[in-house]
Design a protein around this nucleic acid. Structure first.
Length: 545
DNA sequence: CGGTAGAAACATCGGCCCGG
DNA sequence: CCGGGCCGATGTTTCTACCG
């Protein structure tokens, strides 16, 4: 109505956004000023919520005075009128809260902050500063007077929200695209929704996180410790899209929520099956798309879960009602369930509870100090859930394999080819980065502190055996032990850089460190490291070390 | 170190649009 | 031209950070 959203590709990006307007469609002056001065560092959704509260204040003033005059009152500094309008607004908010039994105190705070911010700003620049100080004092009084907008909310039942085993079991069979119980009609919808459902249930993603994944979010990596490929899913911003066309762009909740989590083969197969056969070419890179060839909107996920919930059997429905006091399964329920199952798996594999909880943090993107994992610790012993999870999921994968064999007798899924192509390309970027390094100097000088003498390495770029003399020792850094010429060059750069700033002994130690990484993890580990975003190192930091 | 404010998520609903 | 599916708008809950 009066909170309008402006989004036009013709406008410069900073002019796109939200704006409050009066009933003629003219932007409200002080709201626009406030947004420009104070709205910049708020997230999109928070800013919208605050602007809506400010809009309610404008409406309240109009009701109280009979004229849409808040802008004028602020401009003229009509404190008496303003004060009584604010008090009227407070009463309005309190009544609204009482009627709906919800907490609307945010509206009150946002409106008061709005008025205060504006006067604070003006009192610093305006010549009639003294009178604004007076207003400040009055606003402060209002704030103190009405600090507690306490609505007696009914205490909510805090249920542990892991889904009961019977419900999970039922959901698997409903979401299965080949099931007669599947409520979605087109085959494409069925597979997309199945993939989405598994991402929520098995990866424990937040609702929005699944919707910002790019096409290549699932990465494959050779892991020498298990002698095979291991798959990861990168939960982070879609780096290929600068601007999300959705009304509510999904986001990553907090900085630590950017993470890299292992993904089961069964899930990747189903996601890939959706991508290869149903998603098709679209002019955006988001993995999950609507049937209108656009990135899927957030509320649609809830619709999908409503559909699944609606198809539950009476028995499962009863169980859901008894245990969770609800009729509907939400994406977040899947996340809760996933957390409990993962915890149980960790503990079952003999892991200490403390360590298991640390692992949960990495998997679900909670901060180090977050109490969230402990909430799940209580529920982890529901062991029937685990057996259902594994058994049922294996069944579903078998179904998928059967379909594959029918439609693709050669049995060569596109997954591996495509993933390998992506890998080559990824390494190409890393190699370009190495090639772009400045060339090594013609000679490197370092100080042997024991002899207090400067030593020189000549032609470090061409020479593969650097002789390092220090503390009466002589070491040879044999760069020819690196097979890959790019990695060899990278190692030389690292050592040259270290020689300029560290003791020679330290450099030698680091050289052997690099060599042992190359031996243990393969030389491509360095190339992948170059590509890895800082947050993705989180995993190595928390788990491997 | 517990409680709370604030930010950003999740959930629901009405209406519109597009494909059959 | 009808109805499912989707999107925008609005309401509610979750999670972190900060403060005393």
């Amino acid at each position: 109505m009066t909170l309008e959203r402006i989004r036009s590709p013709q406008l410069p990006p900073q002019l796109n956004g939200r704006v409050l307007t009066d009933e003629r469609g003219v932007p409200r002056y002080w709201a626009t000023v406030w947004e420009a001065l104070h709205g910049g560092d708020l997230s999109e959704s928070t800013l919208a919520a605050k602007l809506r509260a400010i809009d309610r204040l404008y409406h309240s003033v109009r009701e109280q005075t009979g004229a849409d005059c808040l802008d004028r009152l602020i401009a003229e500094g009509d404190f008496d009128q303003l004060e009584s309008c604010l008090e009227g607004f407070f009463v309005h908010v309190r009544n609204a809260s009482a009627n709906s039994r919800t907490d609307r105190s945010v509206d009150w705070r946002a409106a008061l902050d709005f008025v205060r911010d504006i006067f604070e700003r003006r009192s610093r620049s305006d010549s009639v500063a003294r009178s604004f100080d007076l207003m400040q004092a009055r606003l402060l009084r209002l704030q103190r007077l009405y600090a507690s907008l306490n609505v007696s909310r009914q205490p909510k039942l805090k249920a542990m929200r892991a889904l009961p085993a019977a419900v999970i079991e039922d959901l698997y069979s409903i979401a299965n695209p080949t099931s007669v119980r599947n409520p979605f009609r087109s085959e494409g919808q069925r597979w997309r929704n199945y993939a989405l459902f598994l991402l929520y249930l098995h990866q424990g993603l937040r609702r929005g996180e699944a919707l910002i994944l790019p096409l290549d979010a699932i990465k494959e990596d050779f892991d020498p410790s298990i002698g095979g490929y291991r798959k990861w899913i990168d939960v982070t911003w879609n780096q290929y899209e600068g601007d999300d066309p959705r009304y509510n762009a999904p986001g990553i909740k907090t900085a630590l929520s950017h993470r890299q989590i292992p993904i089961a083969d069964g899930v990747t197969d189903i996601v890939q099956h959706y991508v290869d056969n149903y998603r098709g070419r679209q002019n955006h890179t988001f993995l999950i798309a609507s049937n209108r060839h656009r990135p899927l909107a957030l509320p649609t996920v809830n619709l999908m879960f409503d559909g699944l919930s609606g198809a539950l059997s009476p028995a499962a429905r009863t169980e859901l009602r008894n245990r969770l006091h609800t009729d509907k399964v939400t994406p977040h329920d899947c996340r809760h369930t996933c957390a409990v199952v993962r915890l149980a798996e960790f503990v079952a594999s003999g892991m200490e509870m403390e360590l298991a909880l640390q692992n949960l943090r990495v998997f679900f993107g909670w901060t180090k100090a977050s109490e969230m994992p402990r909430h799940y610790a209580r529920a982890y012993f529901e062991d029937r859930l685990i057996s259902v999870w594994q058994k049922k999921f294996d069944d579903r994968v078998d179904v998928l394999r059967a379909i594959r064999c029918r439609s693709d007798p050669a049995g060569t899924p596109m997954t591996s080819n495509r993933a390998k192509a992506g890998k080559v390309q990824k390494h190409a970027a890393a190699r370009r980065a190495i090639a772009a390094l400045p060339s090594l100097p013609s000679h490197i000088r370092y100080l042997d502190e024991y002899e207090d003498e400067w030593k020189t390495i000549h032609h470090p770029a061409e020479c593969n055996k650097w002789v390092i003399e220090y503390d009466t020792n002589t070491s040879i850094l044999d760069f020819s032990k690196f097979n890959d010429s790019d990695i060899c060059l990278l190692a030389k750069h690292v050592c040259a850089w270290l020689l300029n700033r560290s003791a020679p002994a330290h450099v030698v130690l680091n050289f052997y460190g690099l060599l042992s990484i190359a031996n243990d993890s393969g030389e491509s580990w360095f190339l992948e490291g170059i590509d890895r975003a800082p947050y993705d190192w989180n995993f190595y930091w928390d788990v491997r070390l």
